[in-house]
């Protein structure tokens, strides 16, 4: 476990030194504040559109923060040949994958904390209401989603040829699932066989990332999901994270280390 934590802390330090998060945070804050400063029909209390824009920017930023660094972790180690001394410590390949995952996930969590804190302040000042539990649970579910995405990206980094390919493919898959994942079964119902069965199979196999997106509940000030559902979503996320990490290890353990 100590080895995993040590690798994770190295990853965290590397991500901390890079300026990705700062740039994205400043952009998110700037665009949100600009949008909030627009006066529509002389009414300064209109809040929902600011919340919507801010949350959209937070989601885009978080995906960039999670996918980018996770995609380059293993390829960079191989390219720089630092993977040889690392594995000679001795560190097993499973520990390395787990360490990389924990590092990326924890840093993404801190980034989310800052972003949601900003969202909370903007939303609270605008609406004069502070539903802290809502903000916290939205951030928690978002963090679970990022866990799945980071694990998926690590699998991509040992399967796909280059970090840029992995980055692009993962983002397309994640955005695709977020937009159409929940509707695939309806689409399958309208298709002829075997197309219908194929789409239905995809529907049951993909991780349903849309469950972790409760932006609408925040925007429209709706009640939170029941605790049982939150627990179920957490277990679901844990299973998918384990699946992607295990698959990454299966591929990585037999992979030649020289680039």
């Amino acid at each position: 476990m100590n080895i995993v934590i040590a690798i994770a802390s190295v990853v965290a330090k590397e991500m901390y030194r890079r300026k990705d998060f700062y740039v994205l945070f400043v952009l998110t804050a700037l665009i949100t504040l600009l949008a909030g400063s627009v006066n529509f029909f002389g009414d300064a209390k209109i809040a929902m559109y600011v919340k919507e824009i801010c949350l959209l920017l937070i989601w885009v930023s978080s995906l960039v923060i999670a996918v980018g660094p996770a995609a380059r972790q293993i390829p960079a180690e191989r390219e720089n040949r630092t993977i040889f001394p690392l594995l000679a410590k001795p560190v097993t390949r499973a520990q390395m994958i787990l360490g990389k995952f924990v590092g990326c996930w924890v840093v993404a969590g801190f980034a989310l904390l800052v972003l949601y804190l900003f969202f909370g302040v903007v939303s609270g000042l605008r609406e004069q209401a502070w539903p802290v539990a809502h903000f916290f649970l939205a951030a928690l579910l978002h963090w679970l989603l990022l866990g799945i995405v980071i694990a998926m990206t690590l699998l991509g980094s040992v399967v796909l040829s280059a970090p840029s390919v992995n980055w692009t493919v993962t983002l397309i898959v994640v955005i695709g699932i977020l937009f159409v994942g929940e509707h695939l079964n309806k689409v399958a119902g309208r298709l002829h066989e075997p197309g219908g069965s194929m789409v239905r199979t995809v529907y049951y196999l993909i991780p349903h990332l849309e469950w972790f997106d409760i932006r609408d509940l925040l925007i429209y000030n709706k009640p939170l999901p029941p605790l049982l559902a939150l627990g179920g979503a957490t277990v679901y996320a844990a299973i998918y994270m384990a699946f992607f990490l295990y698959a990454s290890w299966l591929v990585f353990r037999r992979k030649p280390l020289s680039a």
Binding site: Y204, E210, L217, K222, P226, A233
Partner: peptide, 16 residues
Amino acid sequence: ASDWIAKFGSNFRVTE
């Protein structure tokens, strides 16, 4: 909702 995924997913979106 026609299946368990859609039923479970309805916990996380606006249904009211």
